[in-house]
């Protein structure tokens, strides 16, 4: 290890000697990045081999989508449709089998560190060191992203205050908080690092109605306040309708429909004579209703 540290030190010095580029002479790569979408997913496929019988599951198949800066992009799908796999692919937690992903112009495989710095994720199961307090958990996260602990503390108190959690709760072990509160702490952990692309994987699934609304209102505020982009997976149609600028419907790992909620609704009304609701959109493109599915999702979230 001493050797790598030494090498890093010396290479670092070498880099510092190189004169800074003249103003206006941006690196070509940097210039190209301006105006790139927040997230570009091109023909991405991910397969898993599961079980003893080595069954091949195509969790995500040939998915392409573009998320613009400042937008909330909804991914709607039943359980097992590949939503979380898609989020994990974009989070660098899974390698891509086919296709490519680009985040603010950074290729996810070639430019992994740059990508990691611009993203953060909230998943359906708010995962923490249960005995550590929210403050301690958030301090850990903040330090990993190079933020000073003091600043992290102030910022997390501010974010959680807006989400309706009193400061005095932030010093107790996280396991003593309700699930709704834990999910809010998870959101604070992600926002603390000021992600330019925020990945929300079913952030409201399994929450009590009150917390659910708190989280939804907060997501709306985020969109209005920042030019960060958000990908939101959900199987709540009202939530998708209310929050998302664009929606992709995922079924069996494929995108079966995408567009703005208004476009999609108009399309089913026009082409299939159905009621102009997201329910009909979902029914029309996947052949089933999301209602039966919700139960299962809640159970999974509670058990996770």
């Amino acid at each position: 290890m001493a050797i790598t540290l030494f090498l890093r030190l010396t290479t670092r010095r070498a880099i510092e000697v190189v004169p800074a580029p003249a103003p206006g002479a941006q690196e070509p790569a940097e210039r190209d990045r301006v105006g790139r979408p927040a997230l570009l997913v091109e023909h991405v496929t991910k397969r898993f081999v599961v079980g003893r019988e080595h069954r091949v599951v195509d969790a995500v198949r040939d998915v392409s989508l573009t998320v613009d800066r400042g937008h909330i992009y909804g991914v709607l799908g039943a359980n097992g449709s590949g939503k979380s796999t898609l989020i994990r692919l974009v989070s660098t937690l899974l390698t891509i089998d086919e296709g490519r992903v680009e985040i603010f112009g950074h290729d996810i495989e070639r430019d992994e560190m740059a990508v990691k710095r611009c993203i953060n994720r909230v998943s359906v199961d708010a995962a923490f060191f249960k005995k550590l307090s929210p403050y301690e958990n958030l301090a850990f996260a903040a330090r990993l992203y190079g933020l000073p602990a003091g600043e992290a503390r102030r910022e997390s108190a501010r974010i959680l205050g807006r989400l309706g959690i009193a400061e005095k709760r932030l010093g107790q072990p996280t396991e003593q908080l309700s699930r709704g509160m834990q999910q809010k702490v998870a959101i604070a952990r992600a926002l603390l690092t000021s992600p330019m692309l925020l990945l929300l994987d079913e952030p409201t699934t399994g929450l009590d109605p009150r917390s659910k609304v708190d989280v939804q209102v907060f997501i709306e505020d985020l969109r209005d306040a920042q030019d960060a982009a958000i990908v939101l997976t959900t199987h709540d149609l009202d939530e998708a309708d209310r929050l998302c600028d664009r929606i992709a419907v995922l079924d069996g790992g494929r995108v079966v429909a995408d567009g703005t909620p208004a476009e999609l609704k108009a399309q089913v009304a026009r082409e299939r004579g159905a009621a102009p609701t997201l329910e009909s959109v979902f029914m029309a493109y996947t052949g089933r209703s999301l209602d039966e599915d919700v139960e299962e999702g809640e159970a999974e979230a509670a058990g996770a």
């Binding site: 990691k116 994720r121 199961d125 995962a127 996260a141």
Partner: peptide, 16 residues
Amino acid sequence: WEGTLEYTMMAPIHRR
């Protein structure tokens, strides 16, 4: 065990 592995693995730090 704690379930935090994915969060730590996606943080922008080198494994070393």
